Amino acid sequence: MPETPEPHLPTAVDLPLQDETGAPGVGLVTQIFRFAVTGGLSAIVDFGLYVIGLFAGLPVAVAKSISFIAGTTTAYLINRRWTFQAEPSRARFVAVVVLYGVTFAVQVGLNQILFHVLPDHWWKVPLAFCVAQGTATVINFIVQRAVIFKIR
């Protein structure tokens, strides 16, 4: 009798390119576009609060932590309703909290490292922010599309 394979998180090969159980009538290209628009708006919130925090004299990690929370909250609320058209779900919310915990560590940690290793030039803050934000964005889209917004 063949064994049933253990469930696993999707790998790049497993990621669905068609939206068989995702948002009704919203394909991958539309989701990527909406995710990017939402991400742009959320990045403005995030970066704006980050710069304000730095200007106010907050430590780098504190300023980035506050801005991350505001930016990701904005992103989740818009993505749930517009990008993935998902109804509220307690299980999905818990999964998002876990995902955002991981991306928080990745984004704040990467930003902190780059902030301290890059030379002191005008582009240091935006470059550190963009690299950290971009890394977290890719992680967020893949996990949200493949896992979180398929949770009922």
Rank of each mutant, 00 (worst) to 15 (best):
F68A: 08
A95F: 04
L77V: 07
V96H: 11
A132H: 11
Q31A: 01
L110S: 08
T30F: 00
L15R: 13
V26N: 00
F93P: 03
L17R: 09
K64I: 01
A63D: 05
L114F: 12
G57E: 11
P119S: 14
F33I: 09
R145K: 05
A23S: 05
R34E: 00
L114P: 10
F47Q: 05
I142S: 07
A70H: 03
A146F: 06
S89K: 10
A132C: 12
I52M: 15
T137W: 15
R80W: 01
Q85V: 08
I151K: 06
P10F: 11
L127A: 15
W122L: 14
W122H: 10
G40T: 05
I32C: 02
F55G: 07
P10G: 15
T73P: 03
I69T: 13
Y76K: 03
C130W: 10
Q144S: 13
T38A: 10
P2E: 07
P59I: 02
Q31F: 00
Q31I: 00
G22W: 03
Q133R: 13
V98G: 07
A43C: 07
G109F: 04
K124V: 06
V98W: 08
G109E: 04
D46K: 09
F33D: 00
G134V: 12
Q31D: 00
N140L: 07
F141G: 01
M1G: 15
L58K: 11
A70V: 02
I32N: 00
T74D: 03
A136S: 15
I78C: 09
G71P: 06
E3K: 14
A12C: 09
S89C: 03
T135K: 09
L77W: 05
Q18V: 07
G22P: 03
A136Y: 03
T11P: 11
G134P: 13
V143T: 10
L9S: 09
Y76H: 14
R80L: 03
P126W: 11
G22K: 02
R34V: 00
F35P: 03
I139F: 09
N79S: 12
G27Q: 02
P5W: 14
I148K: 03
G22S: 03
F93W: 09
A91F: 05
H121E: 14
H8V: 15
G27R: 05
T30W: 01
A132V: 05
F35H: 01
K150I: 01
G57N: 10
T21D: 05
F55T: 10
P119I: 12
M1W: 13
A23W: 02
V117I: 15
V98A: 13
E20H: 01
T11A: 11
S67C: 08
P16V: 01
V96P: 04
L28A: 04
F33L: 11
V97D: 07
E87N: 04
T103I: 04
A56H: 09
P119A: 14
V131T: 15
I151L: 14
R152A: 11
L110K: 04
C130T: 13
T30H: 05
L114D: 04
L127R: 13
V138P: 11
V97E: 02
I148V: 10
D14S: 11
A105H: 02
V102T: 06
P119G: 15
F141V: 02
F93N: 08
V147Y: 07
V94K: 13
N79V: 10
V117L: 12
F35G: 00
R92G: 08
Q144F: 07
A132N: 10
A70C: 08
F104Q: 05
G57D: 06
V45N: 04
G71C: 07
V51I: 14
F129C: 10
